[in-house]
Simulated scan of single mutants.
Amino acid sequence: MGNIGDFFKNVVSEMRKVSWPKRKELTRYTIVVLSTVIFMALFFALIDTGISELFRWFLAL
């Protein structure tokens, strides 16, 4: 049981050393991530639609 207590003491000690982002940085990073995800989703939806239409056109011949 002593090992579990030591483990959590070490976790708390290491968490105090972490450099957490400020609110402004966090907001900026969140916007970058969300805009990238939205862009990639739209990009792949467009590519998927194009490939699907190409296959429909090819199979209709």
Rank of each mutant, 00 (worst) to 15 (best):
L42F: 13
A60T: 14
E14N: 08
L61E: 05
F55S: 01
L26N: 12
K24F: 05
A41M: 14
M15P: 05
V18K: 14
A41P: 02
L61D: 02
L46P: 00
M40E: 06
N3F: 05
L26G: 10
K24H: 11
E53K: 11
L59N: 13
M40S: 13
F7D: 04
K22L: 15
I47T: 03
S19R: 15
F43I: 02
R23H: 10
V32N: 11
L54A: 09
L42E: 14
G50R: 00
L42P: 02
R28I: 06
F58H: 03
A60E: 07
I38R: 03
V11R: 00
L59C: 02
G5E: 12
R28P: 05
A41T: 15
R16D: 06
V37E: 12
W20Q: 04
T36V: 03
V11H: 00
L59I: 03
D48E: 04
W20E: 09
N3E: 08
V37A: 12
P21F: 07
G50F: 00
K9D: 15
K24S: 15
M15N: 10
E14Q: 10
V32M: 14
V18Q: 12
G5F: 06
V18G: 10
F58S: 08
E14A: 12
L54T: 11
V33K: 04
L61V: 04
E53F: 02
D6N: 09
V37D: 06
I4G: 03
P21H: 10
K9M: 09
V32Y: 09
K24P: 13
N10V: 00
G2H: 06
E25I: 06
L42D: 13
W20Y: 15
